[in-house]
Each structure stands twice: as C-alpha cells, then as structure tokens.
Design a binder for these strands. Structure first.
Lengths: 188, 188, 188, 188
DNA sequence: AATGAATGAGTGTTCATTCAT
DNA sequence: AATGAATGAACACTCATTCAT
C-alpha cells in the first residue's frame, strides 16, 4: 500500500468527495484546491494533472477495499461460507459507509482498459474467486464457473448501494445478499 | 416509443458509439457532427445541447432494451422460470451485440438522480421484479425481497459484458447466469 | 507569396505591431484578439498556437521585404552599383517606414536554426550576394568574399534603424551607407 | 567593473548559457537554479527578480567586451588603423569564443530603451567612433559620419557570428572584415 | 432546414516569487 | 546565508453554442 503524506491525503480525501458527487468535467481543480485548503499549484506538486489526480483517487479507494477484504480471505479460521458472508458485509459496509466509496468504485469500472486497472480489478475478483474455489474443494459449494460468480458479487452490491431501493435497510440487504449467493452456491 | 427521423437516428447512432467509448467530456460535438456527416449547427436543430444529446442517446438505448424485455414479460405463455431465462438471455444478447449497448447502459446508471431517469431505471427493475413476484405467487420461486433480486440481475450481466473474463463464451455465460439466479430463487 | 484572407491579414497586422513593441511573453493573445477585433478563439482558426502566430508574423514581414528587393535585383536595366544602392534604400525604407518592420526583422534573426528560417534568411543574403558577384564579374566591384558582404549590409541597416543615433536623417543615412559599401567594394 | 562572488558568478554563467540558447520566457528559474546547483530561493538573494537576473547577465557580458576593447583603444602605441583591426579581431574573438557571447550581445540590442542600456550600448559605439575620429583627424581615414560607421562594425560581426556562413573560417572572416572596413574608410 | 465560421466564458496548467525552516 | 515547498496570479487554449448566410 502506497503511503501518502498528510497533505496528499487531504487532497485525495477532498477530491474523492468531489469526484464522487459530480462528473469529472464539473469538478474544478480550483474548487478542489480551495476545499483542501491548499493552493492550486500545490495540486501539481503531488499529481501530474487532473487525470492523474482522478486516477489516484480511484486507485486509493479501490486499494483500501481490497486490503480490507484480504483480512477475511486470508483468515484461516473462517470457512468459505463465513468468508463469503464477511466479504459481502465488508463490501456493503464500505460502500454504505460513505456514498463516496460506492460512487468511486463504480467509476473504477469505467476506466479504459489500461493494464494497471485491469490488474487491480482482477485482484478483487480473484480474491472472491479463490474463496469460492476453496468452498468447491471442500464440497461446501458447487459452481461451474467461480470466475463469473466472483464478478457477480461486487456488481450487485454496487448496484444496490448506488440505487438504494425505497426503504432500504442495510442489515436486511446484507442478509438477503448473503442468502442469495449462498443459496446459489449450495451443492446438489 | 419515440420516432426518430433518418438524420436524427444517424446522429444518435454516432453519438452512442462515441459516448460509449469515451468519457462525456472527451466527446466533442464537432467530432460527433463530423462522424455523423452533418454540420455542427445541425445537432442543435435536433437536440437542445450536449447534455440533451447525451440524455437522448442513453434514453433511446435503454428504451429499446425495456421494450424488448416486455415482449417476454408480457407473454402469457411463459412460466416465470422461462421468463427469467429469456430476460437474462435478452439482456446479455443486447449487451454483447454491441459493446456500445453495455457501456451506455452502464452510463445510465450513473446519471444524476433526476426524476426522469429514476423512473426509467425503475421501469426495468419493476419488469423483473414482477416476474419474480409472479414466480413467488405460483410457488416456483422463493424470495424474501424480489426488489433486490430484480436489481441484481442486470448488474451481473452488465459487469460481465463490460469486463468479459478471459475466454468468455456467450452461451456458457448465459447458462451460468440463469442457473445461478434460478438456483438462488429455488424454494426451500 | 502566400495569400491571406482579409481577417487573417488584420490579425497578422495587429500581431506584428504588438510583437514588434513588446517581448513575446508580454504579448497576450487576448490583447491581440481584442485589438484585431476578433474573438480569442478566432485566432486559433488561423494559427495553431501563439508560437505559430509569431512565426507567421515574422515570416510574412520577411517575405514582403525579400519580394520587394527582387524587383531591383531582377531588373536587367540596373547596374550592380545601382542595384546595391536600391537594395540599401529599399531596406532602409522598409525598416524606417514602420518601426514594426525593423523590430520584426530583427527577431527573425533570433530564430532557432530550423530549416525553413535558414532558407528564408539565406534567400535574402543570396539576393545581395548575387548582385555583388555580378559586379565582380563586370569588374565594377572587388570582393574576396561576397557572401560575407551580403550579410554585412542588412545587419547594419537593421542596427541603425533599431538604434537610430541622435538626430538621424534618413536620406543622410542612406547616402552614407551606400557610399560606405560602394567604397569598400571599389576595385583596386 | 563590478565584483561578483563565486556563487554569483556560477549563477551568472549558468543563466548566460541558458538565456543565450532560449527565449527569455522559455528559461525557467527553477532550471537555472538547478543547473547552477543552488536553491531556487538563493537566486533571489543575489537578484531582485528574473528581469534583474537577465539584465545582470547581459550587462556583465557586455561590460567584459567593452573592458577588453578599451585595452586597445586606450593604447597610445597603436595607430587608428591598427586599433580598428584590433577591435574587429577582439570582438570577433569574443563572440566566436563562446556562442553564448554572441547571442547575449545580440539580446542587449533588443533591450527596451531604458536609459541604462542606451548608455551601455553608446559606450561601445563611442569607443569605436573615437577611434575613427582619431583616424579622420590624422588623415588616415575619411568618414562623413563616424557615428554610423561605429555602429556598422559590431553589427557585421554579430551577424556573421550568429549565422556563420557555410565553411566559415575565423581568420578569413577577420581579414575580410578588416579589409572591408578599412577600405571604406580610406581617404579619397 | 442546414451549415460552419466566429465567439468568449471557462479551465487546466505554469512558473515567478515568497517565506518558514 | 540557503533552501524548496507552497502559492496564486496570470495566461494559453478549448469547445459548446450561436447566427448570418
């Protein structure tokens, strides 16, 4: 995980907030600078240009999520079923905690297919895929193609967190999502 | 369904292609006009401004999909299970047919929460939701919250069509997605 | 000679005036546009960027001078001595007519050694060189290296026109310059 | 002659090099500081601002030349003819020694007409003018306006040193320039 | 209806200058 | 004295939009 200075962090936090709430071209660097309480020129000390800042914002957000998920997937004490539950709850928590997170994660998905992003996205999916494959190996799950399933899970959490249905309850949603996925993965 | 003139259609097709492949602010109206073989001023005869054109592009794409899906959901001869299968196959077909479709649909999802879009999105979800509720009513399905599930389904397909895993096979994916959803909806 | 549209000419004239009177970085494109009574964007319809406009201004000025000189050098009725006199008078006239001309011509001389400028400068010098060589051939002149002399002539006219000595009289200067050069070229 | 500290000299040398090779606005103070191996802030300990540094660079170069020329013009043992020869050789040597010198001298000539530069330029021309007048007084030279001639001479040398003709030979050029000028100054 | 030359508000980016250390 | 991170005024350039033809 890349380390950011205090000022860099402040800029990234501010920019994340703004990019999450408005389209790229509506976010003015002068506003970002102002909101982050730094000079406009200072942005350019830390980021090559607007695109680069945008990239850094998304990348950091995504990296934090992946890092958090690893805590569960690498935990030897959890069964695959428990891991799936933890992953869904963690992702949902991450996205609901700050609207910013969900929106930004969503943006990651739009990024041009350059290698770095492809790798980053794949990192998330692989994490989930491995858990499913572990479950298949132990006989807890059945899935003819875990790779697809690994991609399904983030997609619907994202969808629900961006477009929360009328009267959405966080716990209720997590429970439904877990049940839905685990049911689909049940053997026999 | 709104009717478009030949020239209007050409503009929308061209713009759809371009908006699908680049971010909003990277798409220049002069490029759109050139690619659509019309004058720049002509765009303004048909669309109020750039936002309006963007809106029209997404709206048309989305409407086509919804219209296509209605053919299945309103078909009295299909069981809920069959309808779900048809919906998944139709959506997947729509998105895989032209990359443009998947990308644009994806954009729809990011649109600011103005009422018109909320309604449009809800139209798609409701279509699916009703099929699930129909299945629940007949006892074919069990789902504690069909509204969530209705939102999950398009999100899967979108994710896979935008980020096709290595060696993706269309038919293979449709089969997997159908099985996954139907398994999750199986009663007991 | 390149042909310029009415508006292009207006821009070039305005810009010439401004570039002649201020350093490159002090000339603001917004001022140029305003002074030329066109929109800022219009400048970019005719010139790729600020450098390109600057280049065009200098190039046009230089081309006009060269063109004017050709009228004399190609005139079969003039003797080499007369041609030298005409050249000196024409160049001096050109530069004194508008301070702009002298200053711009001066700038030409600072231009990086890219091929196009090298050619353009050489065109001027060659014109003069040929006249001297013609005189050497007829025995009117003696010069061990006309190429050097050809370069001397524009240089001192430029110097005097940019830094006119106290109480400079145009006619007086032309007479002095002609006498000076012709004396130096006298055989024996 | 102003005395410069070791660090000041390093800055001036570096800046001279850079100003000689690029336009004023293309020379960045950060580059100058870096190349001179001092902090950017340090420049401001020695020079009020960028203009001041530029000024100092030109001024120093010019002063050195004038100083060198004085050694000849004030030498009582040289005849006016010899002095002219020495002046031409010295100036040519100065400019050919380092391209920097010629280019900077050239810049001096473009400086806005503020008094200090006018004086400095006049100092050079006056030096030469006095030599010519001395020659006229002794009958060695004939010149209806030595002031003009004094201005011609540096302009020749500058032109040739900045735009050296194909296959230029230093000694050959000096000889030609001396002969040219002396011939033009020959009485009768 | 159709055009594209003209526009200028708006914005990203640069870079001379400052000042806390 | 020396530094270089921080600044923001200043500016080049873009591009959606208009309008005369």
């Amino acid at each position: 995980m890349k380390k950011y200075s205090e000022k860099e962090t402040r800029i990234l936090d501010t920019a994340a907030e703004m990019f999450a709430n408005q389209a790229f071209h509506k976010v003015l660097l002068s506003d970002v600078a102002h909101a982050a309480r730094v000079g406009k020129g200072t942005l350019y000390l830390y980021f090559k240009n607007k695109d680069d800042l945008y990239f850094a914002v998304l990348f950091r957000g995504f990296s934090i999520l992946v890092e958090n998920l690893k805590k569960f997937t690498e935990n030897q004490d959890l069964s695959p079923t428990e891991k799936i539950q933890c992953i869904i709850r963690e992702m949902a928590g991450f996205m609901f905690m700050r609207a910013t997170n969900a929106h930004l994660l969503s943006r990651v998905m739009h990024f041009p297919e350059d290698g770095e992003w492809q790798d980053k996205r794949t990192e998330l999916w692989s994490l989930i895929q491995e858990v499913i494959e572990e479950g298949v190996a132990t006989g807890e799950f059945k899935d003819s193609c875990p790779r697809y399933t690994a991609q399904y899970i983030p997609s619907f959490i994202r969808s629900i967190s961006i477009f929360p249905p009328e009267g959405l309850d966080h716990e209720h949603f997590c429970a439904h999502a877990c049940k839905f996925v685990l049911k689909a993965l049940t053997p026999e």
